[in-house]
């Protein structure tokens, strides 16, 4: 379109619905949440007054909030390495597997698609203290049962296990894509260069090739894990005690059960800082991956 005037008008016309809606549904809420974090506003309460950094100070001093950050961190540290390692392992097993590969892949990916809320109930049945399979197996071995979701020691690890179950297939799919994109000629070249052993070639050819995707998957899995909510809401409601009170569940309770909008907003800002960091990393990694 050579006439730039026309082009300008058409561009504005086509982009304006998206621009206006983004302003209303993304920019405005972001400003709102940032603004609320600096006031004493509570939904349905008095008009807001500016309180500076008071909310942040209070939140950081709150032992419950600090505990929830710790709980979230522990959850991430269990889920991410678990899903990453298992995903890579399954991908490596699937990569040279001729027959049945598609069936395996489908089964491994199914948990990621399946509605997690509904699947949480299935896990609840599996872990039920009286008739759950876990305790039935323990009983058969002559061991006592565990109340998995009501025991402070096991509740978070069990949620992490469900998280790993949910995310492994997701990680696997990326590793599988990376593995199949290793050029066959590189393996041939390595053999002629004297790398006879499969293990040597893995480190020379396959390893570097999947390292970049591994980093990318790590970031995405962390972003998923920090947003854990469904299993907590359905299975433990943050309990027992505060053992599974993850960050997003705190925000949920503060904002939508207790209606302390300022506290929720402040926690959200923390949450945003973390996810934005991950987002920048993800975009960076995604971009370099695209260029390679």
């Amino acid at each position: 379109m050579p006439e730039t005037r026309d082009q300008r008008r058409m561009g504005l016309l086509l982009a304006s619905p998206a621009a206006l809606l983004m302003l209303l549904l993304q920019v405005l809420p972001l400003l709102l949440v940032l603004g609320t974090a600096f006031t004493d506003w509570q939904l349905g309460g008095d008009p807001p007054a500016f309180v500076g950094l008071e909310n942040f100070r209070a939140l950081l001093a709150d032992p419950d909030f600090r505990a929830s950050v710790l709980v979230t961190a522990r959850y991430i540290l269990m889920v991410v390495p678990g899903a990453l390692g298992l995903g890579l392992g399954l991908a490596l097993l699937l990569q040279g597997c001729g027959r049945g590969r598609m069936i395996y892949q489908t089964i491994f990916f199914l948990p990621y698609i399946a509605t997690l809320a509904a699947m949480s109930i299935a896990w609840q049945m599996l872990l039920h203290p009286s008739f759950g399979m876990a305790n039935q197996v323990l009983a058969a071995l002559g061991l006592g049962g565990v109340n998995w979701l009501r025991d402070e020691a096991t509740a978070l690890p069990v949620l992490a296990l469900i998280g790993v179950w949910h995310e492994t297939g997701f990680a696997m799919v990326f590793f599988l894509a990376a593995l199949t994109s290793v050029p066959a000629e590189l393996h041939d070249a390595a053999r002629l260069d004297g790398m006879g052993g499969g293990w040597d070639r893995f480190w020379l050819v396959t390893g570097p090739h999947i390292a970049s995707i591994g980093l990318f998957v790590l970031v995405v899995l962390t972003a998923h894990a920090v947003m854990v909510f469904d299993t907590v809401a359905l299975l433990t409601q943050g309990g027992p005690g505060n053992a599974t009170r993850v960050l997003l569940y705190v925000i949920y309770q503060e904002g939508f059960s207790f209606f302390r909008s300022n506290v929720a907003a402040t926690a959200t800002v923390f949450f945003l800082a973390f996810t934005l960091t991950l987002g920048v990393l993800q975009l960076r990694l995604g971009r370099t991956r695209g260029a390679a």
Partner: peptide, 21 residues
């Protein structure tokens, strides 16, 4: 720029203010 920023902001962050709206 706004699109790229939007990519990095997860839904739960927007949920808090959107609920108020």
């Amino acid at each position: 720029g706004a699109v790229l920023l939007g990519l990095m902001v997860p839904a739960p962050v927007l949920a808090t203010p959107l609920f108020v709206m």
